[in-house]
Amino acid sequence: MIANNQQRKQVVIVAMSGNTLLNFAGPADVFTSANNCLGASGSEAGYDVLIASPTMDKRVSSSTGMEIVCQYCAMEIKTPIDTLIIAGNDFQMLRKPEYKDFYQWLSFLSENQTRRIGSVCGGAFSLAEAGLLNGKKATTHWQLSERLKKEYPLVDVDATAFYTSDGHIYTSGGVSSGIDLALALVEEDHGKDIAIQVARKLVFYLSRPGFQVQFGNLLPVYESSNIAEKLHNWFNENLHEPLDVASIADHLNMSPRNFTRVFHKQTGLPPAKFIEKLRVETARKYLEDTDMPLDCIAEKCGLGGLVSMRRTFLRHLMTTPSDYRRAFRTSLKVAGVGDILQSNLHYPN
């Protein structure tokens, strides 16, 4: 449902310390651009956008070293807040005493007071700390999703989405996903035509294709003592082979049963699932950095034929190999230096 678009709405974006500037600047630019588009159409509706700090000193330090002095502290705003967005979180400040008043203020906000409450990236941790995500579906940056699940088990975490909504609570993933969320909110308020105009103005998708999972690594980085790291080179040299448990255990002079037990304990994954993810990770690099035909990539990575590789990509990355290549192939290719870069790459035979 599109809200009454003749009434100006107050949008408060709380910039948390240690942030990437885009966490709050991106959504702010979306709402202010919407004002321009609405004004050009003869509408007096739009947004009054305020950037606020979570602390009374009104100072926010960014990850770039720049210090921002806000005109407002969030708790001092007495006029009705239509949309509140918590932008980012550096975690060092998450539970420090100076944030206590902010979380208390946040926890007391109701849907009657604030029509929409949202977050960008690590801002989901602020909402969770205030208890606003309990029993709610939410997302955050893909690198932080496991941490959010562990620290706030009452939150239903979706690590794949660019943004989510559950009742009046909205959350978005990594940095630029704040723009996705803000565009969705503009569309909710003023319709698709205005939202499209804003997206075009910012040279951005109205609805970005794909999912956050496409940006993350399927496998974590393991310590050198981990069995997966010890097998890393051998795996890469033999990805085109079946790599069943018996052959891997034989390579390590271990029994299949003992190898499976040790591998699962140290990596958190059964050997078959780990190897499938490794095959996809390796195929991603070929797709990003080379012009190698898809069937050759499938063969080199042990992913079977094209149909099998497509199914595996859809299962793990929610996209097809060809679509992934179009979205993530090296930008240097366009500049004409991709062939040089490719000639210096070394891949397992």
Rank of each mutant, 00 (worst) to 15 (best):
K277M: 14
E299Q: 14
D289G: 04
F274E: 00
E276N: 13
G305F: 10
A298V: 03
L314I: 08
D295W: 13
R311V: 11
P270L: 12
Y286V: 02
P293R: 06
P293D: 08
P271A: 09
K277N: 05
P270I: 09
L303V: 06
T319D: 09
A272D: 14
G305W: 11
M318V: 12
F274S: 00
E288P: 01
R284I: 05
L317S: 04
G302V: 03
R310Y: 05
M309W: 04
C301Y: 01
E276W: 07
A283H: 01
A298D: 01
D291H: 12
V280S: 05
K285P: 02
T319K: 03
M292D: 03
V280W: 01
K273T: 14
I275M: 05
T267P: 05
L317F: 10
T282H: 04
L278M: 11
P271L: 06
D289Y: 12
R284W: 00
I297N: 01
L278P: 00
M292T: 12
L314V: 12
T282M: 10
C301Q: 04
R315K: 15
D289C: 07
E276I: 02
L294V: 10
K285V: 07
D289V: 06
T290K: 01
T319A: 09
T267R: 05
V307N: 15
L278Y: 00
L306S: 08
A272F: 09
E288Y: 06
R311W: 06
L306R: 07
D291K: 12
V307T: 15
I297E: 01
V280Y: 00
